[in-house]
Simulated assay, not measured.
Amino acid sequence: MSRQWRLFLLALGYFTRLPLPPIEHFEPAELNDAARYFPLVGVLVGLAGALVFCLSLQLLPLSVSIVLSMLATVWLTGVFHEDGLADTMDGLGGGWTREQALAIMKDSRIGSYGAIALLLALMLKFTSLSHIKIEILPFVMVAAHAVSRLAAVLVIARQEYVREEGKAKPLASKLSLTSLWVAIVLGLAPMLLLPVDQWPALLLVAVVWLWFSRKLSRRLGGYTGDCLGAMQQLTELAFYLGILMLAF
């Protein structure tokens, strides 16, 4: 249990800004095992957003409450995934070759493709959340953050890391079967918070995952840390859109 707690703290420290006690004798390779708890970190991020939403809704309009919930999740994660989305879109949009795309993604500056992708993603997230039934909205937030981080873990499990070095390099080893199944269970467990008739929203998540995974494979030959952030953002949006599609 102490090792599992250590791995969870590693995952929490990697993906959030929460102040945590220092991990003694840290080995970078441990981060690969900690990937099993990435969806659980998503659950906590989703819970934080849902809590801010519910509290804000007692005093503020729906639209403002949604923006505050988005702000809470962005602050909690340090814009980690949004930055990955912007960098990935810059690379895929501006690079003609694999080498060009990877070089652009490594540049800390944001380009036109990244800026537009980030702006549209935030607008689409806000609009989608605004149209989801308020009775299930907090639960949708939790499930979306968990499922989307599971989507990123599945990329790690299926593809190769394409950089010689980088923040995500310690994740690059293939996941063990145990880690993969733990991630799947933790990523899908929050779906139990939603009515069964909302579960088909996962189909759109699967479609987006397959499409973007194929694009990464064809354009880059694998993934980078930025690509994992982009996958998280795209599948989170896909989940919200799937929930909306079921309402019509």
Rank of each mutant, 00 (worst) to 15 (best):
P22Y: 09
L244D: 12
S173T: 10
W199Y: 13
T97C: 08
P28R: 11
S173L: 06
S65F: 14
Y113M: 09
C54F: 04
V43I: 10
L150C: 09
G46F: 02
W5D: 00
W209H: 15
P190F: 02
K133R: 12
G95A: 07
P61R: 06
Q58G: 06
C54A: 11
F8T: 15
H81N: 03
E236D: 12
S173H: 12
L216F: 15
F212W: 14
V155K: 05
D83H: 01
A29L: 02
V52T: 12
E165K: 15
S179A: 14
G42T: 10
V205A: 05
K215C: 13
I184F: 07
L193Y: 01
M1P: 10
R3K: 15
L9E: 05
L120D: 06
H25K: 12
L57W: 06
V67R: 05
A34W: 02
L220A: 04
Q58T: 07
I132D: 00
L180Q: 14
F126Q: 03
M89T: 10
K167I: 10
V52P: 01
L102T: 07
E99Q: 14
C54M: 10
S176A: 02
G242R: 08
L193E: 01
S213R: 09
F126M: 03
L92P: 01
A201H: 09
H145D: 09
G111P: 10
K169L: 15
P39M: 09
A11F: 13
A230D: 08
L71T: 13
Q232D: 00
G242W: 07
R149L: 09
W5S: 03
L57P: 04
V155P: 01
R3E: 12
W75L: 13
S130R: 06
I104V: 07
L47N: 05
L177S: 14
R219D: 04
L68Q: 03
K167E: 06
I136T: 03
T224Y: 05
F126I: 05
S69Q: 09
S148V: 08
S56F: 06
A230H: 04
G78K: 10
S65D: 14
A172C: 05
L137Y: 02
F80W: 12
S65L: 15
G91Y: 02
A50S: 11
L171P: 01
K215A: 14
L180S: 11
I23L: 15
I23E: 13
K167F: 12
V45K: 04
V67H: 08
F8D: 11
G95R: 11
N32D: 01
G84C: 02
L31V: 14
P28F: 07
A201Q: 00
I136A: 01
I136D: 02
S69L: 14
L210N: 03
L175S: 09
L7R: 12
L76F: 12
A121P: 00
K106N: 09
S56E: 02
P19C: 10
A172N: 02
P19I: 15
L171C: 09
D226N: 11
G46C: 08
L244T: 14
V52L: 07
Q232R: 12
A35N: 03
S112K: 12
L177Q: 13
M1L: 03
G84N: 06
F53Q: 00
A168Q: 11
I136R: 04
P138E: 07
H131N: 07
G13R: 06
L68G: 01
L210F: 14
L31T: 12
L92T: 04
